[in-house]
Design a binder for these strands. Structure first.
Length: 505
RNA sequence: GACCUCGUAGCUCAGCUGGUAGAGCAUAACACUUUUAAUGUUGGGGCCCUGGGUUCGAGUCCCAGCGGGGUCACCA
């Protein structure tokens, strides 16, 4: 343990003093609550009479104290917000003995302590809805001082903005930064919104393994672990695609999963080693159908989370109202570079890339070069939600070949705020083609591509039994949350983002 | 991985061309019966991220490390 600060020493002393006065700083008995700060503020605002003669009982942390002799004001923060307390000595201590007010309340109750209070609602001279306290009970003592953030007319003073403190000690951040709390409430609304939408269509929410003997479904480096009893390596999943498709083979028409996936790669403001995806597979559908679904679902999410289809994101206002623009990848490149590459061979593509100042190397094939041109010249310009369709075959080993465009697959991504929002295709259900594509991946792996896919015999066996035509979708929940909450960094939408260990010396 | 940048009291931050540590809030004591960034008076509180170096002297300059943030690269 680190050395105690002056504040911490003093708070430990007050613990002893409380005990000497017969007050348990961590009582076990339940304190019954019958209201919240938010409800009181809203209801009293509308109808003062609603609280006539009513004794309310709420609990939370003391966030500030203003003592003026034998009367005091304090601010109580509960899960819903804050409300002012008015405490008068002679009401808290009607008898001769004023110890509870003079000593316990004034000196031994600190900022951050949890208290339960009863009293009645009124409005102060200055018009603030407050609680006239009749009884106060310590529910839990705080031994470390929370940072004190003050506020006047919406302006914050001494707000804690240090990202390190906010991410490492999220419990502190949530207590003192209401905006931070709001982000996480919105994230949950977003997840609920998607779930409602998919449940209404009667798709089945399922769970599939996180520990997998063979990882698959995406191009990424996995985390490896080991099972002791079986004495075998296991991988943390990088995607759940292959398991969900097995369920479509098994006869479900629509399955989805919110899944934590793990990728052992670089970290930056849009990548955390563990992240959440929602993957959906629907039988007898194709990627065109899935585009309609994504538009409808994300539009609903925007409304459920923010009440409108328009969301402020950085400098832009992004509008999720349907319909979204749709381009094939070739059309998009032509639109933003003026060059039509749809008929080019690899040599011509290399020249074009050079002309467009896109850096490429010799290991890149046709598909990769196209992807580089797109990534350099198109993606950064796509702010409003836009579908890009029909990707090069080489980049998409799990997608079905395009019905009438050779060399391409039936795949789309939705791009928004210059970032991929989701990825979807008409799923490859031809087991012979799938085996070939896996084998090509294995070749890439042998040549040193650490992200190449691994051949999954059991998955191929499943396809050989037959999988109906299926549309699949993966949508990044963290990225969508970032957009819907105007968050600059993925760390702002994860309660506990991954960080290097803190040192406690 | 490369480069840039930051690390000083519980919190927010000053600290000059190197001269021995400052403010506001918080905290402690006193006063105050409708305050609201409450106020007034008086105190206490620092391994200046860590370790080396230069120097008579380092919070400050140099090197290395640790941690955070950013840009780029890698990567979906």
């Amino acid at each position: 343990m680190t050395q105690l600060s002056e504040h911490e020493i003093i708070r430990r002393q007050t613990l002893t003093e409380l005990e000497q006065l017969g007050i348990n700083p961590y009582p076990a008995e339940t304190f019954e609550i019958n209201d919240t700060s938010k409800q009181i503020a809203e209801l009293y605002q509308q109808n003062t009479a609603a609280y006539d003669g009513k004794t309310i009982s709420i609990a939370g942390r003391i966030m500030s104290k203003r003592i003026m002799g034998s009367a005091s004001f304090a601010v109580l923060q509960d899960s819903q917000g804050r409300i002012q307390l008015y405490i008068s000595r002679d009401e808290l201590c009607p008898a001769e003995d004023k110890t509870f007010y003079n000593t316990v309340f004034k000196k031994l109750i600190d900022l951050g302590d949890f208290v339960g209070i009863t009293g009645y609602v009124f409005r102060t001279k200055t018009g603030e809805i407050s609680i006239h306290v009749q009884s106060l009970r310590l529910l839990s003592k705080s031994l470390k001082p929370l940072p004190v953030v003050k506020e006047k007319e919406g302006e914050l003073f001494d707000a804690v903005t240090d990202p390190e403190l906010r991410y490492r000690q999220r419990y502190v951040d949530l207590n003192i930064n209401p905006a931070s709390k709001e982000v996480f409430i919105k994230r949950t609304k977003l997840v609920n919104s998607i779930r409602e939408y998919l449940n209404a269509k009667e798709y089945l929410e399922v769970e599939t393994p996180i520990l997998q003997p063979i990882y698959g479904g995406a191009a990424a480096r996995p985390f490896k672990t080991h099972h002791n009893t079986l004495d075998m390596p296991l991988y943390l999943r990088i995607a759940n695609e292959l398991y969900l498709k097995r369920l479509i083979v098994g006869g479900f028409d629509g399955v989805y999963e919110f899944s934590k996936d793990f990728r052992n790669e670089g970290m930056d403001r849009t990548h955390n080693p563990e992240f959440t995806q929602m993957e959906l597979y629907v039988a007898y559908k194709d990627y065109y159908w899935m585009m309609d679904l994504v538009e409808e679902m994300v539009e609903k999410v925007a409304i459920d989370v923010n009440g409108t289809t328009e969301v402020q994101v950085g400098q832009h206002v992004i509008n999720f109202k349907r319909p979204w623009k749709r381009y094939t990848m070739f059309e998009a490149i032509k639109e933003y570079t003026g060059v039509d590459i749809s008929e080019m061979d690899e040599a011509q593509l290399r020249l074009t890339a050079h002309d467009l100042k896109v850096t490429i190397d010799h290991t890149m094939g046709k598909g990769k070069i196209i992807d580089e041109i797109f990534g350099e010249h198109v993606e950064p310009k796509l702010i409003q939600p836009t579908f890009i369709t029909d990707y090069p075959l080489e980049m998409s080993p799990l997608a079905k070949k395009h019905r009438n465009r050779p060399g391409l697959v039936e795949r789309f991504e939705a791009i928004c705020n210059a970032k991929e929002l989701c990825n979807s295709f008409s799923e490859l259900n031809d087991p012979i083609d799938q085996r070939k594509r896996f084998e090509e991946q294995v070749e890439l792996g042998k040549r040193g591509d650490e992200e190449a896919m691994v051949l999954d015999e059991d998955f191929l066996r499943a396809l050989e039994y037959g999988m109906p035509p299926t549309a699949g979708l993966g949508i990044g929940i963290d990225r969508l949350s970032m957009i819907m909450t105007n968050s600059h960094s993925i760390q702002d939408v994860l309660f506990f983002p991954q960080m290097k260990p803190e040192r406690f010396d």
